[in-house]
Write a protein that binds this DNA or RNA. Sequence first.
DNA 1: CCCGACATACCGACTGGTTAGTCTGCCCCT
DNA 2: AGGGGCAGACTAACCAGTCGGTATGTCGGG
Lengths: 200, 200
Amino acid sequence: MPARTTSAESADMPVPQRLLAVATRLFAERGYDRTSVQEIVEAAGVTKGALYHYFGSKDDLLHEVYARMLRLQQQRLDAVADSDAPVEERLRTAAADVVVTTIENLDDAMIFFRSMHQLSPEKYKQVRAERRRYHERFRALVEEGQRSGVFSSATPADLVVDYHFGSVHHLSTWYRADGPLTPQQVADHLADLLLRALRP
Amino acid sequence: MPARTTSAESADMPVPQRLLAVATRLFAERGYDRTSVQEIVEAAGVTKGALYHYFGSKDDLLHEVYARMLRLQQQRLDAVADSDAPVEERLRTAAADVVVTTIENLDDAMIFFRSMHQLSPEKYKQVRAERRRYHERFRALVEEGQRSGVFSSATPADLVVDYHFGSVHHLSTWYRADGPLTPQQVADHLADLLLRALRP
DNA sequence: CCCGACATACCGACTGGTTAGTCTGCCCCT
DNA sequence: AGGGGCAGACTAACCAGTCGGTATGTCGGG
């Protein structure tokens, strides 16, 4: 048993998942470019043969991380946006939710915002498109509130959304699990800042 | 005259500056790891000998970009924070100013937030330390306003600052020079959002 | 006024090491 | 007995950094 691996990425997990879990961690720690395929397979306790048996390329591994993250967040946003609570509450919930899920998957988020441009051009395009869909759904909430007068229209909805997601990206830079605030507390604060900025 | 280069990075600029300008552009376009020293020297119209005559390593080139950016922004923040305008106005000016200078040096900013972790450990530490100094100066403004009651204390100053700088980081992802808003307009909007979020 | 000594600026071939991805084949399960 | 799951050696392409060499310039002394 060489080079200790973290908790659940050990021997009992099926090889494909194990590879993905290890790759996620290493990409987050060292970055995509600086992580060699050799390092990944060693940490997963297999060889290159296994990796290329399940994945077409190193790039595929990265893409999987994105697909997983995008699926999760889009799903959760849709659920919130489709509810029939007042728009104020829907936005607050959505804004806080994306913060919590980002913190809970901080490795994925780190990779997302730091290594996105290292995807192959076509996969990059695809990820951008899905990202935009998410973004637009969120913006629709802001616009709805602005039209109905619940939110101030002083700032274009686009900018408001970019403002908020900027802080979400930024989370992986400063949030520490051993810090004083729980994910939920951070989320509540950030959602609160957004809603306060939007007060008429 | 091979491979057209952009405007001012051409033959009349002294070699060291030219190398730095070209490297900045390429790092922003393709990322640090994916830009080879060979590509840099070719685009600058010199050879490796020249590059290693002026710079100790590829890493040095990256560090220069950071040093330039940090110097500029710290200088501007200090000037604003030291003025004797009301804290509300000082914060608004500082918040808008960092947005404008970030947009005006979008390549540098892109590199900053995407390639920082590719610096050698000691240079990385140094950059982080200077960055923290900047951050703290900014936070002091928020805290001052909170103590004097001009700003709401609902959110810890730390979080407020991270919220705002998140959006600044994010700028290089979405801001386009050919978009509808001028840098100053974006800056005013973002500063406004910050100040509005801080209303008591 | 010229000559040699030394320096600065740069060239470009080379090296040692690393990398993603391939291929052949073994092993085990069905 | 046949195929999925994997091992591990191999290859071809790079890459950062080095090094000996050259061209141009500068300066002091005879």
